[in-house]
Amino acid sequence: MSSELVIKNLHANIGDKEILKGVNLTVKPGTIHAIMGPNGSGKSTLSNTIMGHPSYTVTAGEVWYKGQNILELDVDKRAKLGLFLAFQYPVSIPGVTVANFLRAAINGHRAVEGKDTRETQIPMAQYRKDIREKMAALGVDEAFARRYLNDGFSGGEKKRIEILQMSMLKPSMAIMDETDSGLDIDALKVVSQGVNTLVQDNSEMGVLVITHYQRLLNYIKPHVVSVMMEGRIVREGGPELALELEERGYDFIREEVFGNGN
């Protein structure tokens, strides 16, 4: 059973429009893998399709993780397999506190089919201790535990809460969708540190970092960089590729891949 995330010839539509046009990509365990690409290249569609967003229809291809084609699984089952998506735009749920939501998420992960949830759920004392520690580490005020999930949070607060969730749920494969968007430099540092700590604690963890800019990659250092354009992965390289993109922009790759004046 491999804990590689293997994407094979993935095609996906929004409505009638094809966005992913045959994505092939492998994210290895213990690897930070960045996907860079210009706006509209299909990066967010890729992350949402992997997680199972209902607005995207898969028309062809497979996504394998831990021995299963996860495209056949419900969203919650994908999460329980160890996948986590840090949202570009986290959704607010009025009336549901961060603390209650996170406890439900943890208990959802711990639930075993056919077993009484009272046996599997996290003991309250342990949960309280965990959430306090993680909040302190991420510089999140404890008062947030009692606030409604993402309701009235600033962009930076939402992203911190995403990382808080990630550090509580301890995924084996995390997808970070434009996590740097809307973050100032201080928030960016805190969020990156949170991710790096998780990776240090779990040497088998894979991270797929989706970003438009190189900036985030100064803080979360990738082992592999893939470039996405027009719904496909068009180039793969090491960290130096990110720096080259920063310097030269995406056009040189576009020219190499699609030719001049296409």
């Binding site: 997680m51 199972g52 967003h53 209902p54 419900d74 969203v75 919650d76 994908r78 999460a79 329980k80 986590f84 998506l85 949202f87 986290p90 959704v91 749920i93 009025p94 009336g95 549901v96 209650n100 939501f101 439900a104 998420a105 943890i106 959802g108 992960h109 639930a111 409604y148 969730q165 749920l169």
Partner: peptide
């Protein structure tokens, strides 16, 4: 979007639905 968000955290569809409804009634 709300259902997808909650389910992406390992919460079942039924529980996600009831969380949203209870939150609305809170």
């Amino acid at each position: 979007e709300q259902l997808f968000y909650l389910m992406s955290r390992g919460i079942s569809q039924a529980e996600a639905m009831s969380m949203i409804v209870l939150g609305f009634m809170e």
